[in-house]
Amino acid sequence: MAARSVMLKYLRVPVVQAVQPNPSSTFLSSFNAIRRRFYSEEVRGTFLDKSEVTDRIINVVKNFQKVDPSKVSPDAHFQKDLGLDSLDAVEIVMALEEEFGFEIPDNEADKINSIGLAVDFISSHPQAK
């Protein structure tokens, strides 16, 4: 241990600061670091635009096998308007999870039974991508 500290003392090299950093730039970079830390996209998440969410959801529902694409509208109800049953509704919600890349908890998923409700839920969810 003692030998090590002697060695380290012996090997110590004076560090010359080559470039004097510009004080304003250090301030700016530390400010940016703080901003990144507290306001980063990962932490805060972003809310998707409602019209974009609507378009994507309509697309997913139209691609669902049993759905007649001409019947799909932004305020269609899965069971009343699209003629789907509760099992199909589960499948659609799972397809929406895949489209938007996040997991919808069971109690929320049970409530989603129309395109309007799906749009409301997904556009208010910060993790939807």
Partner: peptide, 10 residues
């Protein structure tokens, strides 16, 4: 039942 179905799909 719907929960079981959802678990299967997951």
């Amino acid at each position: 039942v719907l929960q079981l179905y959802r678990s299967f799909l997951r």
